[in-house]
Amino acid sequence: MTMYSMLGAVEIGLIFALVALGVLISFRILNFPDLTVDGSFPLGGAVAATMIAHGIDPFISTAAAIAAGAVAGALTGWFNVRLKIMDLLAGILLMTALYSINLRIMDKPNVPLITEPTIFTILLPEMMPDYIERPLVLLVIVIIVKLLLDRYFASESGLAMRATGANARMARAQGVPTGRATLVGLALSNALVALAGALFAQSQGGADISMGIGTIVIGLAAVIIGETIIPARRLVWITLAVIIGAILYRFFIALALNSDLIGLKSQDLNLVAASLVTIALVLPMLRRKLRGGSRGNAKKGA
């Protein structure tokens, strides 16, 4: 595995760390199985790429992509909270609708950004190769997002959102507006995912209508791998674990696809992804069994 491939894996891993943080909010904190992610990721890319292609500043375009993702997440929450549509179905409905909306935004299946200015071309000084500088810029962005999330979830509004996900009935009994917390949480989750989509489009040189396929699987895999490697209860460590999980996920995929001994090819990407998620799901169970067995042996010895 070359240094170029390794840094490329880190770059994509940092982008999907934002997706993983969004999935963490919906699946873990709110306990809401939100499939809007598969639509809000390409939505962010479509909005940012289309605006940049029309000569709008990349930073304004990225901010618009974040706002579009927040609206998509809020709509999912509105379907669930106000229209009483089941959470899983609400996400599926928005994900399906966003496919057509993204096509409308781009007016074609893809929008290239090869010759257009992006956040990376503006921020990066021409001192090092771009494949080294881009991961550094993304690392700064991910760290800033992590710190802001940690600060938010330590606030009164963030604690109310966490209480909503832990026990909505008890939270309502304590005067927490659980409906509003769900709307805000899903808006925040999909805003992060749309930010990842906007950065992905600018990093890879364009947006494509199919770029969101499997996004939710990648986000869940990053969360599961991170929680397996760094089991923690404090949210500060959980967000860090999720970021590390996203980077490791992309690194393992790159390692598998670039290994001549295994013989895997690009068409085996989904197979590798499914295998990694399966391993991540099985490891905690094996760990519990090993701990249970060691405790049983210790009692017998006593």
Rank of each mutant, 00 (worst) to 15 (best):
M1D: 13
M1Q: 15
T2D: 15
L7R: 10
I12E: 11
G13C: 09
F16W: 08
A17P: 14
A17Y: 06
L18C: 12
L18K: 12
V19N: 03
G22D: 04
V23Q: 08
I25G: 05
R28M: 02
F32N: 08
D34P: 10
T36F: 01
T36R: 00
S40I: 05
P42R: 05
V47N: 05
A48D: 10
T50Q: 07
I52H: 01
A53E: 09
G55K: 01
F59Y: 12
A64V: 05
A67F: 04
A68V: 02
G69A: 05
A70V: 03
T76H: 03
N80A: 05
V81M: 01
V81A: 00
L83V: 13
K84H: 14
I85L: 10
I85E: 02
M86V: 15
M86T: 15
D87S: 09
G91K: 04
I92Y: 10
I92C: 13
L94H: 02
I101T: 07
I105V: 04
D107E: 08
K108D: 09
K108Y: 11
P109M: 04
P109L: 03
F120S: 09
I122E: 11
L124T: 10
M127T: 15
M128E: 12
I132A: 07
P135Y: 12
L136K: 07
L138G: 04
L139W: 06
I141P: 00
V142L: 07
V142C: 04
I143T: 12
K146G: 02
D150V: 14
Y152L: 12
Y152H: 11
F153I: 05
E156N: 12
S157V: 13
L159E: 07
A160M: 06
M161G: 09
R162Y: 04
A166L: 15
A171Y: 05
A171V: 04
A173L: 15
V176R: 02
P177E: 00
T178K: 01
T178E: 00
G179T: 01
R180I: 04
A187I: 06
S189E: 11
A191H: 01
L192S: 07
L192A: 09
L195P: 00
L195T: 01
A196F: 12
Q202A: 05
Q204L: 03
Q204T: 12
G205H: 03
D208W: 11
S210K: 14
S210E: 15
I213T: 14
G214N: 11
T215K: 03
I216Y: 06
I218A: 12
L220C: 07
L220A: 05
A222T: 08
V223A: 09
I224V: 06
E227W: 01
T228L: 00
I229G: 08
I229C: 06
I230Y: 15
R234D: 10
L235Y: 03
T239R: 02
T239W: 08
L240A: 14
V242P: 15
I247L: 13
I247D: 13
F252I: 07
I253A: 09
L255H: 10
A256C: 03
A256K: 02
N258K: 11
N258S: 06
S259C: 00
L261Q: 14
G263V: 05
S266T: 11
S266E: 14
D268S: 11
D268T: 08
L271P: 00
L271A: 06
A274W: 12
A274H: 07
A280P: 00
M285W: 06
R287I: 11
L290A: 08
R295D: 12
R295S: 11
G296I: 07
A302D: 13
